[in-house]
Design a protein around this nucleic acid. Structure first.
Length: 311
DNA sequence: AATAGAATCAACCGCGATCCC
DNA sequence: AGGGATCGCGGTTGATTCTAT
């Protein structure tokens, strides 16, 4: 596993970028593209490492970036997507034109997380009790950008493929989506299906097909682990997410609750999870990179339905 | 006006994934 | 197939700015 060696050199400049450096980098990239980050600083006459240049370009200099404050709609998008995919900042940023993963991450860490931890919906600025009432009665929570599922799927897929394509051709912002039949792509597709299934299931509670191939009505805390122990091959991500969301269990008061009810009760409480179930969930969702982490939502979703809620 | 503490965000670090020879 | 080079991501740091006292 190779390390990036460039930053280790003593003669490489660090810290804040000056306007002159920005100009040099911008004009070089405008002329030559971003084919090889290692060579860019050398050719552009910059005493920076390639990594630093890439970061400066992608997070600040790119002409398509927005630099202003996050709008309410953008905050809403972050909150919604974060509840679906967790700390997958690049994925979230991919849904927000002009915003970088760094922007989204910083905004979440400095503003949104704080509001959420205080029990305040960062968008409506109302307590979560209000929000949860909306979930129960109208299902409006997580109305993911009100986009058709296919459109969202296309966007997710495009974003990912653009990244891959741009790496091979190097031209910034000119990549077009391509669809390749490979094992990796199939895995990506499965992951995308699961993620989209989760979002759609949360978005549209009560739309579960009536002929569901499972029956969790009699599930108890004790047998939940068995109930969601596998992602059946015959089941779509959408169905599976519904399956998880519809399961019933008992909360820490012993009351029977659905996953969504548990979610509503959970508020800012912590909850635990068992190792075996977490491993199973992670296996279902194992992704190419950061492979030990499953999207937080599904882990949490399973958690709500499976474990005691803890304060 | 001065100062301390909090908030913000650009930049860095380390790691895993992927590319490419 | 193996290994070095490169890229991209998420977590963290620290300089700067803002706010309260």
């Amino acid at each position: 596993m190779g390390r990036i060696p460039c930053c280790e050199k003593d003669n490489v400049k660090r810290g804040q970028w000056t306007p002159e450096e920005d100009n040099k980098l911008s004009s070089y990239i405008a002329q030559h593209g971003t084919r090889n980050w290692r060579l860019i600083p050398k050719n552009a006459g910059l005493q920076r490492c390639g990594k630093s240049c890439r970061l400066r370009w992608t997070n600040y200099l790119r002409p398509d970036l927005k630099h202003g404050q996050f709008t309410d709609a953008e905050e809403q998008t972050i909150v919604k997507l974060h509840s679906v995919v967790g700390n997958r900042w690049s994925l979230i940023a991919g849904q927000m034109p002009g915003r970088t993963d760094n922007d989204v991450k910083n905004h979440w860490n400095t503003k949104l997380k704080k509001k959420l931890s205080m029990g305040i919906d960062p968008v409506t600025h109302k307590p979560f009790s209000h929000l949860m009432a909306e979930i129960d009665h109208t299902g409006r929570w997580l109305t993911l950008q009100k986009q058709p599922l296919a459109a969202l799927k296309m966007k997710c897929s495009t974003s990912y493929k653009e990244t891959k394509t741009s790496r091979s051709n190097g031209a910034p912002g000119t990549a077009t989506p391509t669809y390749i039949n490979s094992k990796q792509d199939q895995k990506d597709d499965t992951i995308e299906k699961i993620k989209l299934g989760i979002s759609r299931a949360i978005q549209e509670p009560g739309t579960l097909p009536s002929n569901k191939p499972w029956d969790s009505a009699g599930a108890t805390l004790a047998n939940f682990a068995g109930a969601c122990s596998a992602f059946p091959p015959s089941m779509s991500g959408y169905q599976y997410a519904h399956h998880l969301l519809e399961m019933k269990g008992t909360d820490h008061h012993g009351a029977r609750v659905s996953v969504q009810e548990a979610h509503a009760q959970q508020g800012t409480n912590k909850f635990c999870c068992t190792k075996s179930l977490r491993e199973k969930t992670e296996r279902i969702l194992r992704v190419g990179k950061k492979s030990e982490m499953a999207p937080a939502c599904l882990v949490q979703t399973v958690s709500y339905g499976t474990y005691h809620l803890m304060t």
